[in-house]
Nucleic acid binder design. Structure first.
Lengths: 342, 342
DNA sequence: TGTTAGCACTCGAGCTAAACGAGTGCTAAC
DNA sequence: GTTAGCACTCGTTTAGCTCGAGTGCTAACA
């Protein structure tokens, strides 16, 4: 016995129904609601086969069947192969962004917000890791007589700044001169290269030694800080709308994972070579998320930096819709961030 | 009949017990667990009086009593009057901050984190509104041939930046010259004053008209953006540990309020002239938080900017502990941000 | 050989009634 | 003024029950 076309159709109907209702699906439901010309008894036989094949689970004898992880996997793979994503809401999404895309953090926050409200799940937007970023400009701005602000602009338009102490003999012009020099030397290099260059040239500008190490240190810090990509998570409370989380314990473990973003980052940072990655239940690798699915896509930022967007929801997720939204959002972010800052 | 010392002692015992257990308190419990030399019957009479006075509620006839909002209010006022806050954990708090206080946003994030983990409630940290902030420096940094980055440094060390388009005839030196000029003109003025100045002086520098309006616009945007103070909220899922939120509906409405931070900001931005503000249940003014208490304190940032820190938890909150933690954290933030950036 | 009607069986959900017990208010004695 | 005693209340828990959705199997049918 193996999977044939009819079994697949029936399985699909079961998944569709379960995604919609969250109630274990019985043979009669399929026979009536979906136009298979088959009686419930026949469906029953097929369902029994599907269970044996590992595509369906039965919570208990007198309940209907529930799709297994394996079933969702098949379903999603089929969806991805067909590639028919509803991208109709693209323009709707864009409206959200028109006037507001100022700060990087605002953008990712908004994007996550939009993902969440369009899907009713939890929206995720992650900035690229900064490891590959190249410096475009480095500027020292006087803040007080003993402190200056270091502003670092990278090729993807991301700006980081921090305060450092400086000798009191520096005025604005002196700082500017240093800025120019540093910029000339460092433009086009990655953060880690920049540190090396600064370390190497210390002999050159011995007199400013203290300050140079200060800045170098800062670049290191920034690099380290940026290596942990920023992550916006919006709509966590949406999850409480779904019956599978009416159990408070489940809800709590889910929310805890999302709050301590480390685990999430761990997953999101895994390289993905596909346009979309769908992790179903246990595939997430996080025990607390074993009843959740995580769908992610990438957007491009500048030359070769990839950010990640995604949606977390119950395993019985509306995968088609989510993929459509993610696809549209990915395009928009790529355009928006690419065009605007380039 | 009115409140006498004994009634007050009994009330305090009831509140203490209820805060600890979340179970309606019976007369027998008080008589046994707390060293009043009184029998349950006497306590019962007193409790009856306290109920009549509005300090106790009775969920139903055969249950114990529960403190009313009025009771908590009395309790907290007493606590504040005594002013005996446990500040023993001050040094413990400071350890969390030693090496990390780089970016403002990191600091408030960490602070909220610490508040949450020390109290097991939800921690809030809000930056001051920027309305009163004065410009200290304004710098244009070239990003590409047609775009520059405007960096605004204010007197409290807060930095905002945004990209603007510029004419292609600007090189780094030209931008620097403009920066100097702008800084000279605008230093010491508030953001809104700065806009007026720029508007007024447009005639002066007519040739750069387009750019000036661009910057002016930006300052307006920044001002508007900053008017909504940033708010970090950490530990929302802690709330699920408390039995009063084992009802999913309650939990959801709570989490929703915290996620859409607007309402929260609305409360937090209310001026408070006391060191601490305690809003109990309905006093928060937010229906969804009628079973929560919000305790806030202020920290000082720079000359006359006040930020707010706070904790949200169930009305039966460990007020003493929370006040102690907030007090310590307020001091630390004031020192940390005051010293570091000043 | 595949499909379907019929039927006995399973088992969780939901309802009801009874037992339980924590807590109260009241009364009478101290 | 305090306390022991007691009847009473009422939410919670438990046990038993029915109900019904859904199944698997068998036998008849095309």
């Amino acid at each position: 016995m193996s999977m044939d076309a009819r079994k697949f159709r029936i399985l699909q109907a079961i998944i569709d129904d379960y995604i919609l209702t969250a109630i274990p699906v019985g043979s009669r439901t399929i026979s009536k609601k979906y136009e298979t010309g088959l009686s419930s008894a026949t469906i029953r036989n097929e369902m029994s086969d599907l269970e044996e094949l590992g595509y369906l689970d039965q919570p208990h004898v007198s309940a209907g069947r529930v799709p297994s992880t394996k079933a969702y996997r098949l379903y999603v793979d089929q969806l991805l192969r067909e590639g028919k994503l509803q991208t109709g809401d693209m323009s709707g999404i864009r409206d959200h962004f028109l006037s507001r895309a100022r700060q990087m953090e605002d953008v990712i926050g908004h994007a996550a917000q939009v993902l969440s409200s369009l899907t009713h799940y939890t929206g995720l937007v992650m900035t690229p890791k900064a490891g590959e970023m190249k410096i475009r400009n480095l500027q020292l701005v006087p803040v007080s007589s003993t402190a200056a602000l270091v502003v670092i602009v990278t090729d993807s338009g991301i700006v980081r700044d921090a305060v450092i102490r400086i000798g009191s003999d520096m005025d604005a012009d002196a700082l500017y001169a240093i800025s120019r020099m540093l910029t000339e030397n460092l433009t086009g290099h990655t953060l880690s290269e920049a540190r090396q260059i600064m370390a190497a040239s210390t002999g050159n500008i011995q007199r400013r030694n203290q300050m140079v190490t200060s800045i170098s240190e800062l670049i290191g810090e920034v690099e380290q800080q940026q290596t942990k990509a920023k992550l916006a998570v919006v709509g966590t409370s949406n999850i409480l709308n779904f019956p599978e989380y009416s159990d408070v314990e489940k809800a709590k473990s889910f929310l805890s994972v999302l709050e301590g973003k480390e685990k999430l980052l761990g997953i999101l940072e895994q390289k993905q070579d596909m346009a979309f990655t769908v992790r179903i239940g246990p595939e997430t690798g996080i025990p607390e998320l074993k009843d959740c699915s995580l769908v992610t896509a990438t957007y491009r930022l500048g030359d070769n930096n990839e950010g990640t967007i995604g949606v977390i929801g119950p395993t019985r997720m509306q995968y088609g819709h989510v993929l459509g939204v993610l696809s549209a959002m990915g395009d928009i972010l790529t355009q928006l961030l690419g065009d605007d800052k380039e």
